[in-house]
């Protein structure tokens, strides 16, 4: 199939940037979205032009590096799908596709589609850990965790830190990401000791890094490639209120 792409091109953090239009021909429906962009880049390089810079790593939906807003939807808007797992079969011959970077004050654009997502790491460093002596390899059953709690923590731990929740949020809030970590650790015995400080520090770091406040639009839940549920934000809110008493 043949497609018309409108891709955000920006030389560096200070550049203003603009959408540029490219024609791509002979795209196979079995290609992934990133493979389609690889082909575009080969053509650009052959023509002596600068290839489109975009983030990617695992290309199997687990690392959270790929980050593109496609036709107005983070990761392309397919349920539980990262850009790297999006296939060209979900497009039709002749389609026009708009490709933009994540946009948020906390995610400055580095080049083209690449943004700096370090702010998410700063939030994580402010409380996304438990401090306990690990010593040698612990006995697997030394700390018993009820199955429902383990499942709940695993659901929250599915977050891959891609930032689609921020990109899709009208307020550029990182509440879904932050809540996934707070909720995961809050239900586990290892995380309980630092629960009060964690929720305060992580939400504070979130604001300090320039993310917005959550106003319950729930766009994040729709955009999240890992199906992180906004019930974790409610859990974060409960943890915050508990930390105040």
């Amino acid at each position: 199939m043949n497609l018309t792409l409108h891709v955000w091109r920006q030389k560096g953090p200070q550049d203003k940037g603009k959408l540029e239009t490219y024609q791509v021909k002979g795209v196979s429906e079995d290609q992934s979205f990133l493979e389609m962009l690889d082909d575009l880049n080969e053509d650009l390089i052959k023509g002596g032009k600068d290839p489109v810079a975009f983030d990617h790593d695992c290309r199997e939906g687990i690392c959270g590096m790929c980050s593109q807003v496609i036709n107005g939807k983070a990761h392309g808007g397919q349920e539980r799908t990262t850009v790297c797992q999006l296939h060209m079969r979900s497009f039709n011959d002749g389609d026009e596709i708009f490709i933009e970077p994540w946009r948020a004050r906390a995610f400055p654009i580095q080049k083209d589609l690449i943004v700096d997502r370090n702010a998410l790491e700063v939030v994580m460093q402010s409380g996304g850990y438990t401090s306990c002596h690990t010593g040698g390899v612990a006995d697997g059953n030394a700390i018993l965790i009820p199955k429902p709690d383990a499942d709940y923590a695993m659901d929250a731990a599915e977050c891959i830190g891609c930032g689609a929740c921020v990109a899709s949020c009208p307020n550029s809030s990182a509440m879904l990401y932050t809540s996934a970590k707070v909720a995961q650790l809050a239900v586990l015995p290892q995380g309980k000791g630092e629960a009060k400080a964690r929720v305060k520090n992580m939400t504070e770091a979130m604001l300090d890094e320039g993310f917005g406040n959550c106003t319950n639009h729930y766009e994040c839940q729709e955009a999240c490639p890992k199906g992180i549920n906004v019930k974790f934000i409610a859990k974060l809110n409960r943890e915050y209120m508990k930390s105040m008493v």
Binding site: R103, R105, F211, G212, H217, Y218, E219
Partner: peptide, 23 residues
């Protein structure tokens, strides 16, 4: 604070489930 956190608009942005009420 929320409008300073999200200064740049997308060329195309599709809202998926939020409502006129919420916005």
């Amino acid at each position: 604070e929320n409008s300073t956190a999200s200064p740049e608009a997308y060329a195309i942005k599709k809202r998926q489930i939020t409502t006129f009420s919420a916005e």
